[in-house]
Design a protein around this nucleic acid. Structure first.
Length: 473
RNA sequence: GUUCCCAUCGUCUAACGGUUAGGACAUCACCCUUUCACGGUGAGUAUAGGGGUUCGAAUCCCCUUGGGAACGCCA
């Protein structure tokens, strides 16, 4: 079997959205898992809508996900000379021809066809046929070039995901491959690029299925064997509606902002439409080794945020904290905390990861280690910062001031001893401490929390809480 | 309108003619528990409908219904 070469070919008109990311992932996994190559191609022939910001956003997203291209990225706008050459070749061979229809003429044609409830299509008025007279060439029209699609027979698309799909050539019209200004069009550039770059497998969204037979015909006219195709179904929103800018479509970088680890997002995405028995969690190596099209679903899938969170949580729990730390640091800053003004990130991650599904959650719940809490949670304070609790906290201040070594086991003993001395359950002691030190009644185990927070901060916050209670009454 | 695609628990899916239709997320209950969680145990929930083919159909075929895509000098 020859080398597998796949490509991801976005048009730079916006950020890298979640559907595109999945298509890119499938392409990446399929080739890299088979010792092949993966490349990125920017389809920017539409200069009106393409922007440099979008190109940057796509690169940023791909980089964050760790989907590396094996080659330097290709821009279609840099290949115009090559496209012109192939257009000329097709013109020479009679597989393409000039069409002098104006846009208005075309619009009118479409309108009439729709009025007759027909499928809008070019009627072939400039298509050369043996013995057929062509209209007189208008002087003021710059012609477009159309591909001369075969009139008879069928095209069989052997799709790796959807199976064989048969198209009748008579249903296909002659598409424009070069505009009046000479700029080539998408369906044509794709073919030339895929051909020149030796793409073996075209993996793309299934909104391209209907383009494929025409592309196959162009390959044939050029005397080339078309690549294999895999059309991936799209991703729907939680409500089953199509994801769009207006409706919940988010760029991958927004998932970073929501607290996802890139590997976790990838894992969720790979399982959306693909399965490997009952396995839910995959390392990158496992994805590469196991991904294939035999188990990719042809049906569209809904994006389920709850499950995505679950996958992310699984990653947070098992990933080396040193790897999580840089992302965690990024999120801490976002919640206004100074990561250098508190305990080691790795130590905090180890304590928090069991209880946080996202890094946003982790940053919010860990902020108190690095910054002063923003007052007390009202309910928690009312419940736990009572007059009785104040005396407990005072006792604790004394005990902790005298504590020789500041470590979790010692703190554990000190707190237990205090609870027993006061004849209170651990809850009666631990909860007021939490509120005093964290600002609310939620934290990692209290001994760990105080240990990580350090003696100085602990005592200061304990004293502040006592003062708060006294002031109140 | 035309062409094409799709259809198993609420969601992601397993099953490649023979299973009490399995797993995961979510939900609920119980256990564990100093908070929040983690974890453990258990429960309910699905083959869209109708026809065939077959000893036997979630699985193959047809129809219906319901979703979706495409039909640009956009990509």
């Amino acid at each position: 079997m020859s080398a597998v070469v796949t490509r991801f070919a976005p048009s730079p008109t916006g950020f890298l959205h979640i559907g595109g990311a999945r298509t890119a992932l499938f392409s990446y996994l399929y080739s890299k898992g088979r010792g092949g190559k993966f490349l990125l191609r920017i389809e920017d022939t539409d200069r009106e809508r393409s922007t440099q910001e979008a190109v940057d956003a796509i690169f940023e997203g791909m980089a964050w996900l760790g989907l590396k291209s094996d080659f330097e990225s290709i821009y279609q706008t840099q290949r115009f000379a090559r496209y012109a050459e192939v257009v000329e070749q097709l013109l020479q061979s009679g597989d393409a021809y000039y069409c002098y229809c104006s846009k208005e003429e075309l619009d009118q044609m479409r309108a009439e066809q729709q009025a007759r409830k027909e499928r809008p299509r070019y009627d072939g008025r400039w298509r050369p046929e043996a013995g057929k007279p062509l209209p007189p060439v208008p002087a003021d029209i710059k012609p477009v070039v159309r591909f001369r699609n075969p009139a008879e027979g069928q095209v069989v698309l052997k799709d790796l995901i959807k199976g064989d799909i048969v198209f009748e050539n008579r249903e296909l019209d002659d598409l424009i491959i070069a505009r009046g200004d000479g700029v080539p069009t998408y369906n044509f550039c794709v073919v030339v690029d895929d051909m020149d770059m030796g793409i073996s497998h075209v993996i793309r969204g299934d909104d391209h299925v209907n383009n494929t037979p025409r592309q196959i015909n162009i390959f044939k006219a050029l005397g080339k064997t078309p690549p294999a195709y895999a059309h991936v179904s799209m991703i729907l929103g939680a409500d089953g509606a199509k994801l769009s800018k207006r409706h919940g479509a988010l760029g991958v970088m927004e998932y970073r902002a929501m607290g996802f680890m890139p590997e976790a997002l990838l894992n969720y995405l790979v399982r959306l439409g693909w399965s490997h028995g009952d396995q839910e969690l995959f390392t990158r190596e496992e994805m590469l080794a196991k991904f294939d099209f035999d188990h990719v679903s042809a049906a569209p899938a809904r994006f389920d945020m709850e499950k995505a969170y679950w996958v992310n949580h699984q990653y947070l729990k098992v990933t080396d904290p040193a790897i999580v730390a840089p992302e965690f640091e990024w999120h801490l800053r976002r919640v206004g905390a100074d990561p250098s003004a508190g305990p080691s990130l790795v130590a905090v991650i180890e304590q928090q990861r069991e209880r946080c599904r996202t890094l946003v959650e982790m940053a919010e719940k860990s902020r108190f280690f690095y910054a002063e809490p923003d007052g007390y949670n009202e309910k928690d304070a009312a419940k736990h910062l009572t007059a009785e609790a104040a005396t407990v906290l005072e006792g604790l201040v004394v005990a902790l001031t005298a504590l020789p070594d500041w470590n979790a086991p010692a703190l554990h003993v000190a707190i237990n001893t205090l609870a027993e001395a006061k004849g209170l359950g651990l809850g009666k002691v631990a909860q007021p401490i939490r509120v005093a030190v964290v600002g609310m009644a939620i934290s990692p185990p209290i001994d760990q929390t105080l240990y990580l927070l350090g003696r100085e901060r602990t005592l200061a916050r304990l004293n502040a809480a006592v003062a708060y209670v006294r002031n109140k009454s």
